[in-house]
Computed example of a mutant assay.
Amino acid sequence: MSLNLRRLTLPLIAGLGLLGSQFAAAEEEIDTLRFGIISTEASQNQEPLWRPFLDDMAESLGVEVEPFFANDYAAVIQAMRFDKIDLAWYGNKSAMEAVDRAGGEIFAQTVPENGEPGYWSLLIVHQDSPLESVEDVLANASELTFGNGDPNSTSGFLVPSYYVFAQNGVVASEIFKRTLNSNHETNALSVANRQVDVATFNTESMERLEMAHPDKAEQLKVIWQSPLIPSDPLVWREGLSEPMKTRLRDFILSYGETEEQREKIAPLQWAHFSASDNDQLLPIRQLELFKQRASIAGDDSLDAEERERLLAELDAQLDDLDERLKAREAADAEQAEAGVTTAMAQ
């Protein structure tokens, strides 16, 4: 190739490369942000609760914001996996599935308007039920109909699966006369209407039920409450463009600063949002591994050597999670102390 031809070709190649990158950037820009919303209750009930917040998001970001409702949590996880949604509100268990299997990344966490650092899983029965405790439920399980939560629900499934059932050496699907899986609202109404004997629920949904259906809430009796569950995360797909991530993060983390904004998310039982990341899932990952460990330890079909090998692997993973969780707690404590020191200095 002659020198003159090379001088002409190189700028042309560079120009084509620049043009290609511009096309790629243009393809990355979106005019509609698709927001996934897990099915804690019927979508026709959820849509009006979310609409004011989503409208503010659309106005701030300069794009349409389209809610995505589905009949179960798995559909929202799958939608993120196949890039059908750009971000979603999940519970911690479903967020873990989205992070591990759908290219999701936690970037924020809801802050409840009641000021609590999280919420609690519940077992509920009808107010007139003779059942008063987990022990009563387990003793009479073969005669009871159980309303379990969505398999990807933290408070409706994962937490009670471990604390109520695994720790007592039983599996819910095996001990009850009949087991049904439903969302929180359906479980509560089914108990109130005497269609199931006992069901999973949570404190956030209880507060919503007391507002929406106070007569039904009065028919419920709580017989068990879990340890604290971290507040729900917001998750975006990792492939979302960096400019959009920046704009979205700025909007979410500043939302709730005005009284008008707080009023718009009050029906969702939130006051504002805080920054978060995937480490929020560390306690949930521990629960999942504890549940697996309990299952393997009680599996008589495994020979002793295989059982010990699997348990050792799980114990190593649990030790690693424990170290990571301690490091995070220490960092959070140090940050909080630094904040107090700064405030006192001012």
Results as ranks from 00 to 15, higher is better:
L8I: 13
T9P: 02
T9S: 05
L19G: 01
S21M: 14
Q22T: 02
E27Y: 10
G36R: 07
I37A: 01
I37E: 01
S39W: 00
E41Q: 12
V63Y: 06
E64V: 03
E64G: 10
F68S: 09
I77D: 02
A79C: 06
F82S: 09
K84W: 09
I85C: 01
A88I: 08
A88F: 07
A88W: 08
D100M: 09
D100F: 11
R101T: 12
R101D: 09
G103W: 07
N114L: 02
Y119R: 00
L123W: 00
S129K: 03
P130H: 05
D136S: 06
L138S: 10
A139F: 04
S142G: 13
T145F: 07
P151N: 04
S155R: 02
S155C: 05
G156V: 02
P160N: 00
Y163L: 01
Y163R: 00
F165T: 05
A166N: 01
Q167C: 02
N168L: 00
I175T: 11
K177S: 12
R178N: 04
R178V: 00
L180F: 15
L180P: 06
N183A: 06
E185N: 11
T186G: 11
A192R: 01
Q195H: 12
L209M: 13
E210P: 12
A217S: 10
V222W: 04
V222Q: 08
W224V: 02
S226P: 09
S226L: 03
P230V: 05
S231D: 12
D232L: 04
V235P: 07
R237M: 05
G239S: 15
E242F: 15
T246R: 14
L248F: 10
R249E: 08
R262E: 14
I265K: 00
P267T: 03
L268C: 02
L268T: 07
A271C: 14
A271P: 13
H272N: 15
H272M: 11
Q280A: 10
Q280I: 07
R285C: 03
L287I: 12
L289E: 09
F290C: 04
S295K: 15
G298E: 06
D299G: 02
S301L: 08
D303Q: 07
E305W: 05
E308K: 12
E308F: 11
R309L: 07
R309C: 03
L314A: 12
D315T: 09
D319K: 05
R324W: 01
L325E: 11
L325S: 10
L325R: 13
R328M: 11
T341D: 15
T341C: 08
M344I: 14
M344N: 13
